[in-house]
């Protein structure tokens, strides 16, 4: 059967990874290429690169990184950050991305999902959502999770699927950074409404959090950044642990 996926996310600014501590066997932890190789060898099922480059001029640094990673690492690569137009899709797909993640770009222009899905295929379009509880309801937040759009998140997920998104990243602002587990309540609400794969993000602090996520059956993949970058969780050990606990894993 299909394995559950473990996905590290790398934030890249001006061609460098933003956070990370020393890893055995890597000289330069802020080199996206070295870190990507390390994660690949550890058994990461996919890599997400998030472009947080502030200026437009430095975008080429990001695509250079992407090209190098794609020429040396042969697992699926997802790219997000600054994706607002079909030209942005084109730019990163040509450099080796397999999937493109849209977040604020889809809020500004909801038609973007459908247009991209039509041009590049559903499998290529990932809708990434930053979600927070507001008065007992789930709202979509924009601009890196700072602005409440007032959009109902559960409906937004359904609309995204109908428009042609092939996958959803559900990032819970409420659990993000707390390291006390994924937002199972939110994930269950989303999972019950869509048929496309759901990637859980926000809240992973220990191996048990991933086990709880997959046992609950509310996500197809678990995504995290800092717990991997700061070596709090080793991906290889995590996958072996999950497999030993009867979660289907590629190990």
């Amino acid at each position: 059967m299909l394995a559950k996926r473990i996905i590290p996310c790398l934030d890249v600014r001006n061609g460098r990874v933003v956070k990370g501590v020393n890893f055995d066997g890597i000289k330069d932890v802020s080199s996206p290429i070295d870190l990507a190789k390390f994660y690949n060898q550890s058994g990461a099922d996919e890599l997400v690169f998030y472009d947080i480059t502030a200026s437009y001029e430095n975008r080429s640094l990001f695509t250079d990184v992407l090209k190098t990673v794609a020429s040396e690492i042969f697992i699926p690569l997802t790219v997000g950050g600054g994706i607002n137009t079909l030209e942005d899709f084109d730019r990163v797909l040509k450099c080796g991305a397999d999937k493109v993640s849209v977040n604020s770009g889809a809020i500004k222009n909801p038609a973007l999902i459908g247009e991209a899905a039509k041009k590049y295929g559903d499998q290529c379009v990932v809708l990434s959502m930053d979600i927070k509880r507001v008065d007992g309801k789930f709202h979509i937040f924009s601009t890196g999770g700072r602005v409440d759009t007032g959009i109902d998140a559960l409906q937004w997920a359904v609309n995204g699927e109908q428009s042609g998104a092939g996958e959803l990243v559900v990032n819970s602002i409420d659990t993000d950074g707390v390291k006390n587990g994924f937002d199972l309540e939110l994930l269950a609400e989303i999972q019950s409404r869509v048929k496309i794969p759901v990637i859980a993000s926000g809240g992973a602090g220990k191996k048990e959090d991933f086990l709880e996520l997959f046992k609950a059956g509310v996500a197809d993949a678990g995504l995290a950044a800092s717990v991997f970058h700061f070596k709090e969780i080793n991906i290889k050990e995590l996958k072996e642990y999950l497999k030993a606990n009867e979660i289907e894993m590629r190990v």
Binding site: M1, L2, A3, R5, D45, D122, Q123, G166, E167, K195, I196, P197, D220, A221, R250
Partner: peptide, 12 residues
């Protein structure tokens, strides 16, 4: 059943 389509991911 309600398993997902497309068949996307790692399978043995």
């Amino acid at each position: 059943s309600d398993i997902k389509i497309p068949h996307m991911g790692w399978n043995s």
